[in-house]
Write a protein that binds this DNA or RNA. Structure first.
Lengths: 219, 219, 219, 219
DNA sequence: TATGAATGAGGCTTCATTCAT
DNA sequence: AATGAATGAAGCCTCATTCAT
């Protein structure tokens, strides 16, 4: 594809003269294509084609492919963390709160495969772009704060054993929720797609919640 | 770097006229570069430069980039499964065997980051190449058979609870061992590299073994 | 000759920012080179060198070599048919009209050896590209319509015998006019170049006109 | 295709140790492939694949692609002229002899499309290889001698008009017989394949014989 | 703020051919 | 007389990016 110009239909008046809307539109298209093909696999032309505007605007607003990718990554993290904020665990007993958090994480990751894939891609790139982003680092401290608070409550109430590390706990929750989405293609290719069917995923969810709770429970 | 010819030093007699050695040499180089940059990010020229032979031979033996990638993936799986075969669990009681298997998997994955990265890359590509490979599918049945046997023994001896599913168990062991390597870059970027230091990894290993055993144990 | 960039001289302002002119320029160069070397024998670099623009623009406007060839073929047919349109036979008696048409075809083919060679090349390729072109098919119906009209007039006036088939007649006229150009190299190699000298060609032209008229004449 | 080695089946003992048979086998394969794709379009690998022997032998016996092509061309002309020699016109009256010759040429060309295509290809290459071949030039003088003899007899018997030129006559016969095969792909693409069906070709044959005879006949 | 046209660098692959036995 | 392995040169094409308005 050599010439990616917006078609007539795309050129609705609402889009023009609204930089923020144009940028959002581009980021959304970029997310779709980067998540699908990776950083080097993604084509600017394909992103442009998914856009309501033209290829030229991508360069106008984002400079180059790498900067577009970096901002797409930031948007991906921000969107997901926004979702997580809505989870209110304050009023619950520690174990209940933790169970809810684990289940929520499992569900949330399943619902956002493009985010998972962006993180996979970023890992392939050794987190180069994430390391440059202050925005993302700040976003993620929230997850640890949540867990720290739950652990504190659980230890105080005697529900949890002592010495729990919030980062380790976050790691364990993430590992299983992430892997479930990230490795679905190879895992289902090797061991069958039925593992990812509704019922089996519900059962897996229960098991993961159970594993985390057993692991944090006292004695 | 359009013209990647072998330098003088490379042209040792041992390499020539030995197709299998040349192929292995190419696959090793390919693995290194594909694992580093992904399928689309890898450059045939870079692979050739890592080789004792020339770019031309890559096409001579593998046809094109995709076929080289596919065979590299097969080699990656084969190498790793070869390593796993050396693990002898036959004489151990079920719980001990499982503990050993979990610990081994954790260590093994850590020792083979390139394999993990190949699998990540393959997931980015929706397991397209794995799906075409009969070789890989056959290799992986072994892992499930091992677990099936351990579960059977554990159930019989009363060490394990009943109704354990080998694929789910494999999934759980894999998830954590895999994530530990695959997501190290982003995780350490967000939560600190110390998590991947020797001591903390040893502790994590214990926790994972413990989690799996708690989960499989009776009552 | 991997890098065929336009030299300073070529970069005149008139050529830039005028897609149609650039395309025409490329098609003209392509016609020259394809006619000279055939589809597989032609080198994109050589075409580019004949151009006022660069190799990159060939791909920009035509996609790939095959599509460039296909459009070159279409242009070749269109150009030749444009020339034929100028021939006005309406006012003439049928025999005169036919004589004029035959002579014109003979001359016209001689004047457009590149067209003849494009058709030869297309025949080597089993008319694959012509079969895909609706444009060319439509262009050629004109030739048959012309002949149909002349035959009708000739039959009515009694100048021609009845039952003449316009396609057969077109075939006969074409065969000799075409062969005269297409097979000039081998024929003159085998039987001497003098056959294609001015005088002998004039005589041949007369003979062909005569052959066609004898063949169509009554009794 | 990179590695064109003879398969087991091909390696029958009869072929080895018999240079002439191997050469004939290669030439036959080369003719097929050159006729199909042209000189630059033909692939040595494809020719080798059509062969009972290996690619290496092509170079062993013919040196390079151009020499193989040149010898293939010579073989093509020789084969066809061999066929023509079988035509015995000596005992016939001139007009009958000419009619028979024309009809024979028309049929003969139809039966040898690969020869026609080789000549087309050679014309694309400006008869470069034919000009270098003494063999071919000698072969073709026979055709003219035949016609010279017929013309002489026809003039003497009063069947033909005087002043007939054998080369022109050969040209006219060739033109229509050649074009009928060479331009079949484009002509049938433009004007329908039915023109080349059995019945219509028989009718065309009659017309051509008639055209030539009318043209040579007295007054 | 926006854009259609243009582009240089470099990527993947093919091809005829030769090497070493 | 024969061959399996190896190869350099060059071909086609893609891609992110910039020019000129």
């Amino acid at each position: 594809m050599t010439n990616t110009l917006p078609n007539k239909e795309k050129r609705s008046k609402n889009w023009k003269q609204n930089p923020e809307a144009v940028k959002r539109d581009i980021l959304k298209a970029a997310m779709k294509v980067f998540a699908l093909h990776g950083l080097s696999g993604a084509r600017i032309d394909e992103i442009a084609a998914e856009t309501k505007t033209s290829k030229r605007m991508i360069y106008y607003y984002f400079g180059d492919k790498e900067q577009l990718y970096a901002q797409t990554l930031e948007m991906a993290y921000a969107t997901v963390r926004d979702g997580e904020k809505k989870l209110d665990l304050a009023g619950l007993p520690a174990a209940k709160a933790l169970a809810k958090l684990v289940g929520f994480t499992f569900d949330h990751h399943r619902k956002h495969p493009d985010f998972i894939r962006m993180v996979m891609i970023e890992n392939i790139h050794h987190a180069d772009y994430l390391l440059k982003s202050d925005i993302i680092r700040n976003l993620n401290s929230g997850a640890i704060e949540n867990l720290t608070e739950i652990i504190k409550r659980g230890e105080k109430s005697g529900a949890f054993r002592t010495g729990l590390d919030p980062i380790s706990l976050h790691w364990q929750i993430s590992a299983m929720s992430f892997f479930n989405v990230s490795n679905k293609p190879t895992f289902s290719a090797l061991f069958g797609a039925s593992f990812f069917a509704k019922d089996q995923q519900a059962e897996l969810r229960e098991q993961i919640v159970h594993m985390i709770l057993s692991h944090t429970a006292k004695s």
